[in-house]
Design a protein around this nucleic acid. Sequence first.
DNA 1: TTTGTTGCAAAAATTTTGCATTGTT
DNA 2: AACAATGCAAAATTTTTGCAACAAA
Lengths: 162, 162
Amino acid sequence: MATEVDTEITHLKNQLAQRHLKLTRQREIVLDAFLKNDHITAEALYQQIAKTNAHLGLATIYRTLNLLCELGIGQERHFGDNKTTFDNVLHKKHHDHLICYKCGKIVEFECSEIEKLQEEMADKHGFILQNHKLELYGYCKDIENCEKSITTPTPAVGVPTS
Amino acid sequence: MATEVDTEITHLKNQLAQRHLKLTRQREIVLDAFLKNDHITAEALYQQIAKTNAHLGLATIYRTLNLLCELGIGQERHFGDNKTTFDNVLHKKHHDHLICYKCGKIVEFECSEIEKLQEEMADKHGFILQNHKLELYGYCKDIENCEKSITTPTPAVGVPTS
DNA sequence: TTTGTTGCAAAAATTTTGCATTGTT
DNA sequence: AACAATGCAAAATTTTTGCAACAAA
């Protein structure tokens, strides 16, 4: 069956070939693990891979993740904290996020009207739009799970506490 | 004359008093310098202050900038690279950015229609919206200045090169 | 074969922290 | 006087790099 992973692998192969870069086992492992996660950090991916596969050096994870970004498969994100997370962005064009300040929950959404307006704004200011990042911060109304799921009591980023 | 800085200082004073924190000369200096810049890094602010005032420790800059964020005056941003920049966000509600991949130019804009849609999206997903960050990445058509102003040939962040 | 990649450890770069001293309320 | 902030240097984090051994084209 032609899975989404196949598509990504193919894309990766093509991009690598174009640049005379090589498709290694490590790169496949990282890509594979990467695709199974949304917004994951290099460190987390490292841990995750360490559990299931032969050991890959953290430096390789970083190098590969950066490569994926250059090839248009991944994109860096920063959610409040200062850890860089990486997202699959190749087959998820409209990849915006809602983040809860209290429990850290991240919900993905898309909105074509917003996309359209972004295009207009870029045009209005003389830009050719290639990409965007939209993050909405707030509090989720999921009282039940919000408190429970507190991992790190995310420090408010520029939210008036009054 | 009642400048914008006065407003910010007043806000700062009030917020500090509320929390039994103190208004120090250093905090005033940082706030003052901070307000004169859009999206500046801690290091840059440090350098800038070093030129004009008595020397402030870099740690103090960081501490104060983080404080400003907690008080709702500042907000952290990450534009492509992994340096944290800080923005004045108190009196600029609609503070979105267009960033040129090639020359690094940053243009600020606002769009109330987008704001409204964001509100709707948050609501739709059960969030109470507090804040947002919107960054549009692309290439500016300012051929004249785009090439010239290259500071750091910003590495493309997730932009298909094909 | 040739050229790119990995792993490791060392190095960079960025941000935070401990603690004695100093300044504000 | 009490309590918080600063400065400095040391520490902690996060990410990158150099280089010899290794693997893919």
